[in-house]
Amino acid sequence: MSGGAQASEEPVLAVEAVDVYLGRGHRSTRILDAVSLDVHAGEIVGVIGETGSGKTTLARTIVGLVDPAVGAVRLDARVISGTRATRRRQLRRSGHVQYVFQDPLRSLDPDFTVDRIVAEGLVAQGRLGRDEIARRVSQALRRVGLDDELLTRRPAEISGGQRQRVAIARAIVLEPRLLICDEPVSALDASNRNKILRLLDELRTTLDIAIIVIAHDLSSLAGIADRVLVLYRGQVVEDGSIGEVFSRPAHPYTGLLVASAPNVIHRSLDARQLRVVSRPEQVDAAVDGCVFASRCRFATDSCRRRPPLLEVRPGRRVACHHHDTWRAEHVTHP
């Protein structure tokens, strides 16, 4: 396994128990609840979550578009969250953290040509001359597998896969330490999806950067991620190495995700047996209970209390009271 987590090394990114609220006053809602995450250089970490899981907010918090109310985000051990405007701009111009937005069609200015799009960050830095910028832009494009002939095209004039590559080129031209990709492949078909995933896999080794891939489904991480973090309604319910988490999910929600993912072969879990058929008792009424309880087939009275995120094995955490028993139950109930 290339580029796996090196525990001894200092992580590039450390998200430390952040709480994030969005909205103001009485409409303010907690989007992230005590979320922690480490990413090392050369490592790809997947963040999986469905609608309302807070995965995009997590990305926006890391890049500093949203400030955490509690907790901190560190880049190379230095706090980068909640900084003042001057320091924030300095951080941004450094280009250390780069964000590849979901939906490249909307995150690339339709009136700009590709060269101007990719150069924007370098121009904002104001350190390099015009020729040097042009050279780096074309180098970045080659790195993501695009020709110079695209330089003068506009986003509407290139294909979806090419747009995603342009978005990645715009990020890596700044030689970041950390790259966050929000749903980088959700709009692409299978072959183009794999091409982009392979590109990310390549970049982490050639550039030795840390990469976070945010996805709503497992296929967007398949084959490239080392570790995965499963988010449900703003909480981490499980994390660990991708092989372990998906071959033996420890949280019923992860189990449901795995069982629900469409694939062309077979499955070890049956989604129908993981779903709530009829709600036996109102476990979901508990405000401070397990976030997944209302959809959990295996919820019991104890799930009215919030399960702590426990390290069940080194590098494997799960937040479920029944993490070691529910699978047995799944098997015994036909």
């Binding site: 969005l22 807070g54 979901q102 749903e183």
Partner: peptide, 23 residues
């Protein structure tokens, strides 16, 4: 506006932007 992607294309998804940034 941006031209419509050709027929049959998978339109881009807005997976949780709407939910997370209602206002």
């Amino acid at each position: 506006g941006p031209p419509v992607v050709r027929a049959g294309a998978i339109t881009d998804q807005e997976v949780d932007r709407v939910d997370e940034h209602p206002a």
